[in-house]
Design a protein around this nucleic acid. Structure first.
Lengths: 221, 221
DNA sequence: TATAGAAAAATTGGATCCAATATACAATAT
DNA sequence: ATATTGTATATTGGATCCAATTTTTCTATA
């Protein structure tokens, strides 16, 4: 007789853990652009050897989060104004489409969950938490689209610019319109108006992009 | 006195070479879905050790080209009908947009280059070459958009489905409309009609997608 | 013969060691 | 004093070795 297959939760490899931890640190801006990522140092931080660290770094490079040079090591990749601009444009395109595809599939539970994040966003006073809550609000709605490949690309593009968004939110004490824009998007979702929700999502992202642009231009001179 | 700086071509690492070679083999369909990728075997093929091979495999997994399981190894990732469908939908969205952005920047040289590939596509009799030429035709035009991030995503999504397209082209002896559709797209580009070029690109991709879908449904039963 | 279990082989993930290269710094010449 | 050269150190890329686990083979038994 056979037992039912137990989901033994294939424990993640060291490389996976290092990758996830570094990814998180980079997108949250904990590691500054240009900072050297020393393999030995990271290995010691995770109580492991350089082999899994190198694997993790290699993956991060594939995602554009770091750049490496032979025998010189890795640094967190910075983005030019033009690159940031392009990523916002890209996000506006695909997230608007994902939103459109999601609306017909939204159920009560999902809308309620989104409402929770929306309220949490408005109430939250710690700027460091906004990035995360904002992401969860949008992701919750997007997931209803049933488009995992789109979702992956949304996450990936957001990863690249998240730390800039967070820096902006922290410095400027929030994007004042963001809360109201979330409300509007959620209202359109409640009404089942896919076109409106899509349009508002697009504007919401482009708005944030414009705000970030002018913030960065001020900062960088 | 100084010599002109010689581009010493930072020689790529073994991991880079292995990655590129495997990527090419996978997207061209030289390695079948489900085939085991043995680290030792690959290492011997490239006269190297398993370390760079593992790095390469790790990157391939990040791009969704293979899947790995701890202690079990890597296999080329197959795509379900639904996944393929979603990727075509995604491509239609972003490639149409890239085309729209490219048209205003197209110059004579680029158009001529695209014309060359377009003609080559029509003349080519070896089905195995179509995939490559088709890709070059589109990429040539897309590059004028000046959107590297979009381009990267275009390549990445094409990588995932290229081998299915190639299989289809080989089996069905070509997609009859593809040549005419290329002509139409190029004509719209010559006219500078961004909207039309964009719309035709979208239809071109959705057409190919529909053809591939019915081909695969027949094949898979 | 067919099957369950044990032993052997194969395979992966990670640690340690070595080679290649870059950087930092001291010694030397102008 | 400054620039240049040589050397030591640090750091990365890769090879080899070991541990954990899976897969295969073999063997004993019903």
């Amino acid at each position: 007789m056979k037992f039912a297959a137990v989901d033994v939760r294939q424990s993640a490899s060291a490389a996976d853990l290092v990758y996830e931890a570094l990814r998180k640190a980079i997108i949250e801006g904990k590691i500054a652009v240009g900072d050297n990522l020393r393999q030995e140092e990271i290995a010691q931080m995770f109580n492991t050897s350089r082999i899994p660290v190198r694997e993790a770094l290699s993956r991060l490079e594939q995602h554009g989060l770091i750049t490496t040079q032979r025998y010189k090591g890795a640094v967190v990749a910075g983005l030019s104004i033009e690159e940031i601009d392009e990523i916002f444009e890209f996000r506006a395109l695909i997230e608007a489409e994902v939103m459109r595809l999601a609306v017909p599939n939204l159920d009560r539970a999902t809308l309620d969950k989104a409402r929770t994040y929306c309220d949490a966003f408005d109430r939250e006073t710690d700027p460091h938490r906004w990035g995360e809550i904002n992401r969860q609000f949008h992701t919750t709605l997007y997931e209803a689209s049933g488009r995992p490949y789109y979702l992956q690309n949304v996450q990936s593009s957001l990863d690249r610019i998240d730390r800039y968004l967070r820096a902006q939110l922290t410095f400027t004490n929030g994007v004042p319109r963001a809360g109201r824009e979330h409300e509007a998007i959620l209202a359109a979702c409640e009404k089942g108006d896919a076109d409106l929700a899509s349009r508002l999502t697009r504007d919401h992202i482009l708005d944030a992009g414009r705000a970030l642009m002018s913030f960065l231009r001020d900062q960088r001179g």
